[in-house]
């Protein structure tokens, strides 16, 4: 068994069997991470470059740790402080790095489709999308799915709610693709200005503008950050107003009185989309998600690296 793809560009491009394979492999890596020595020699002969054209804390550290735990050699690249500011194109930068015998590229880019562009031009190098603009963030969706299975046993039939800035969130789109492929039910909730107008027609996703009703419906609530850096117009009147209408508070959860698994891809804006007491409550699996992220990324890198010989033949 192996993945049907050479790259991880998005969940959209994956088969359900690919997703299952990544998640079950991640389960074994999670066990590795609990050993006294949390490192395996699998990718000893693989060099990976982490290309980050956009800021990141969790994803970057998580990928780097995953690579190190697999014994891969790693190089880190940030657009700031590089020759990008001198006018070098993305393809030139990557080709220069690859000419130094690098096997895999993990890339975050603020332009949607940047990893797809690279994959077209570099068919023999495995490309892993670590977030591209407002398109996809596939490893985040995979670790969210892993965490949902860990908490509730399955994805099949689970009711998952995505709350907040659906419009600008690549986490939302990747989650929607993944959850639908794996048989979960998905709804979104948030201010109408932050929900794509044609989400029902395009993706078959129901919208529930009333957060209380939406929470009453769901088993799992994945709360998304307001992506202020991607908004060039005023889409809601104030953060305080947003918090009052769409912030998840413990008072709201107590009133609903249902055990809902609370997730958040981070970084959290405390007091905006989620209140502190919810983020730190026993319902919250936010730090568990971060922990699972390393195992899931190890699985992705391990499964994609295996294609190396096949590609060269």
């Amino acid at each position: 068994m192996q993945l049907s793809t050479k790259h991880l560009l998005g969940i959209k491009e994956l088969q359900p069997s690919d997703i299952s394979l990544i998640l079950s492999t991640a389960q074994q890596f999670k066990e590795v991470l609990q050993r006294p020595i949390k490192k395996v020699p699998s990718l000893r002969d693989v060099t990976i470059v982490n290309l980050f054209y956009e800021n990141s804390t969790r994803t970057r550290i998580s990928f780097e740790l995953a690579e190190k735990r697999l014994s891969a050699d790693t190089i880190n690249f940030s657009a700031s402080g590089s020759s990008v500011s001198k006018g070098e194109t993305l393809l030139d930068t990557v080709n220069n790095i690859l000419s130094m015998k690098v096997d895999m590229v993990v890339m975050r880019h603020n332009a949607s489709g940047a990893p797809h562009f690279l994959a077209q031009h570099l068919p023999n190098t495995a490309i892993v999308n670590a977030g591209d603009g407002i398109n996809e963030h596939p490893t985040q969706a995979l670790l969210d799915a892993f965490s949902i299975i860990e908490q509730t046993g399955t994805l099949q039939g689970r009711k998952v709610l995505l709350v907040g800035d659906i419009m600008h969130s690549r986490v939302a789109l990747s989650n929607i693709y993944l959850l639908k492929k794996m048989g979960a039910e998905v709804k979104v909730s948030g201010p109408p200005t932050l929900i794509p107008k044609y989400i029902r027609e395009a993706l078959g996703i129901e919208v529930e503008y009333n957060l209380r009703k939406a929470l009453q419906w769901c088993d799992v609530a994945n709360i998304l950050r307001i992506q202020l850096e991607r908004q060039n117009q005023v889409l809601f009147s104030s953060l305080r107003e947003y918090n009052l209408s769409y912030g998840v508070s413990s008072r709201l959860l107590d009133e609903i009185g249902k055990d809902i698994v609370i997730m958040h891809p981070g970084p959290i804006n405390r007091g905006v989309e989620i209140d502190s007491d919810v983020a730190d409550s026993r319902h919250s699996v936010i730090l568990r998600q971060v922990e699972n992220g390393v195992a899931v990324r190890m699985a992705v890198l391990y499964l994609l690296s295996g294609k190396k010989e096949l590609v060269h033949n």
């Binding site: 068994m1 192996q2 394979l21 079950s24 492999t25 389960q27 074994q28 890596f29 066990e31 590795v32 395996v40 020699p41 699998s42 002969d45 391990y302 499964l303 295996g306 294609k307 190396k308 010989e309």
Partner: peptide, 19 residues
């Protein structure tokens, strides 16, 4: 499970089992 420690990893991809 010894999958991650195999010396033929580059020839064939093996799917790990439970440890």
């Amino acid at each position: 499970d010894i999958t991650f420690y195999r010396d033929d990893f580059r020839e064939e991809l093996h799917i790990p089992k439970e440890t």
